[in-house]
Simulated assay, not measured.
Amino acid sequence: MGEPRWRLVHPVRQREAMLRGLCQVCARPARTELGFVFLAGPGDYAPHDTVVTACQPPVCPPHAAVAAALCPHLAGDPVVFLAASCPLYGVLGTPYEFDAGELQALPSEGRPVPYGDPRLDWFLASQLARRLRTFTRIDLAEARALGPRARADGLEAPRWAA
């Protein structure tokens, strides 16, 4: 397995974890009976924010504290969301345009582009995004206490290769 490489998100692993609701640490089902646990940095969202878009996959309850302790972005007091509803929203990546006979990369806005947006016609996606709809803010102790993972309809989750 090895050490985490924080800034180098593996696009296939990120996509699989987001699509299948897998823990970003252990690649096993992350769903609890109450929903999914998502982590964000201390300054990523204001306490009153009602719209949250996550590009980082969820974590299972046993790995919430592990991820928070190891990830430099989560240092301090990470924001922990328990999301009962978190549908796929769009993608994060690089926009392109065709100009003067060449394909040119454009600067990224740094925000996910929602599905259905016409900009996606010329867009190279690198990460899936989920919109947290019905969520509550909890702390790491509450996340740990959520209990064992729910089963993923009998599917065995992939184990990330080193």
Rank of each mutant, 00 (worst) to 15 (best):
R20I: 00
C23N: 04
V25L: 09
V25G: 03
C26I: 11
A27G: 00
A30M: 08
A30Y: 11
A30H: 09
T32E: 05
E33Q: 15
L34Y: 02
G35P: 13
F38Q: 00
F38P: 02
A40Q: 11
G41P: 07
P42M: 09
D44C: 12
T50V: 04
V52A: 05
T53C: 06
A54N: 05
A54Y: 05
C55T: 15
Q56D: 15
Q56E: 14
P57L: 10
P57V: 09
P57T: 10
P57N: 09
P58S: 15
V59R: 05
V59E: 02
P61W: 08
A64Y: 09
A65Q: 13
A69M: 07
L70F: 06
L70K: 06
L70E: 13
L74N: 04
A75I: 00
D77A: 14
V79F: 05
F81K: 09
L82P: 09
L82A: 08
A83E: 09
A84L: 06
A84R: 15
C86D: 13
C86H: 12
C86E: 06
P87M: 05
V91I: 10
Y96S: 07
E97T: 14
F98N: 08
D99L: 13
Q104T: 12
P107V: 02
P107L: 08
S108Y: 01
R111L: 13
R111K: 12
P112V: 05
P112S: 07
P114L: 02
Y115S: 01
G116N: 04
R119H: 05
L120W: 01
D121L: 14
W122Y: 06
W122H: 14
F123C: 03
F123S: 04
